[in-house]
């Protein structure tokens, strides 16, 4: 074949970007947050992460090979991302069998039923997480108390997350100011010295990864900035209206999965809109829904639900929100 000249349509050069590069870029960006998780939650965190990544890759391989009977796709890195994101959303003391069920739902139902990478309407890791949250509410909301570099593998004490603490407290009629004293300082929350899922605790590590993704142009700024901005503004308005009932914007930004969701989950390429305008609408929607669920809903944390709900709106956004066409005649 080498003797023939190749004929193809232009362009004859390619930027060298590839799906693999994008995916491994995301994985690289998640490593700081993962290491912080390991630091605060010890071997348990390593165990949860390792199991979910291996399970995600394994399930995808098996489904691809025996059910779809297509070419293996596990090397593209997307299964690893799903596995890692799934682990990031888990309390580190979760039993193995629950993790396996969750990953199976994430990969099997969330991704492969729709045809694999690029076809799924919902973020697979979140599908898995929400499935577990409604199926095993007790296990999923029992958070280990953080103990720096605890590698002892004994069952650690458990503690509530700041969000749960506030929610429960307000329900029991405690005042917000007294509750705020019980939760860690904002600085602690930024570093990650706070209870919660293993990957969501450190805002700084997540933002570091986000900066890397932005620098590599794997994501654009639109979704994270509008989403966090909306959370800040909306919770700020509520706080300003009644400081005794509603916590302030800083609290909402740095607790729970807001950062993780904004940087790694809402920006998932497959399930986010295609245009910048659409991304802004998407980000605002997630922000509003997150605060609404956190403040008025039954669950203390609402990022996962908010992202999944907005995922459902993506096809609609893509249909109606178009980029500004060059030379469009204004009517």
């Amino acid at each position: 074949m080498g003797n023939f000249l190749k004929v193809s349509l232009s362009p004859h050069v390619h930027g060298g970007n590839s799906v693999k590069k994008e995916m491994y870029g995301v994985i690289l960006a998640m490593i700081p947050a993962m290491l912080v998780g390991f630091y605060f939650f010890g071997l348990d965190a390593v165990r949860v992460t390792a199991i979910s990544v291996l399970a995600a890759v394994g399930f995808e391989y098996l489904i691809q090979k025996f059910l779809i009977k297509g070419e293996p796709t596990i090397t593209d890195g997307s299964a690893i991302i799903t596995g890692m994101l799934f682990a990031f959303n888990m309390p580190s003391n979760l039993p193995i069998w629950i993790i396996l069920i969750g990953v199976l739902v994430a990969i099997g139902v969330g991704k492969m039923t729709f045809g694999g990478l690029g076809q799924n309407p919902f973020n697979p890791a979140l599908v898995g997480r929400v499935f577990l949250l409604v199926s095993f509410p007790v296990q999923m909301t029992t958070w280990p108390k953080i103990s720096v570099l605890n590698f002892s593998m004994v069952d650690a004490e458990t503690a509530a997350t700041p969000l749960a603490l506030i929610k429960e407290g307000l329900k029991n009629g405690e005042s917000l100011s007294s509750l705020m004293e019980k939760i860690p300082s904002t600085l602690d929350m930024m570093i990650g010295h706070v209870g919660g899922s293993l990957g969501e605790v450190s805002a700084i590590a997540i933002l570091l990864g986000g900066a890397f993704l932005l620098f590599k142009k794997i994501i654009s700024w639109h979704i994270p900035v509008t989403m966090l901005g909306t959370i800040a503004v909306f919770s700020g308005i509520l706080h300003f209206a009644n400081p005794e009932a509603y916590a302030g914007p800083l609290f909402h930004l740095f607790t729970g999965g807001a950062m993780l969701g904004a940087v790694f989950m809402a920006t998932d390429m497959v399930t986010s809109p295609m245009t910048h305008k659409g991304m802004i609408i998407f980000g605002i929607g997630i922000g509003v829904l997150t605060v609404l669920i956190r403040v008025f809903g039954a669950y203390p944390e609402g990022v996962s639900f908010a992202i999944l709900i907005m995922n459902a709106f993506v096809p609609l956004i893509n249909t109606y929100v178009k980029p500004k066409r060059f030379g469009e005649v204004k009517k």
């Binding site: 190749k6 799906v19 994008e22 997307s78 690029g118």
Partner: peptide, 13 residues
């Protein structure tokens, strides 16, 4: 001059 394999769209925009 070789074109790479066509992969499914990942909707990266």
């Amino acid at each position: 001059s070789k074109r790479e394999k066509i992969n499914p769209c990942i909707r990266c925009a």
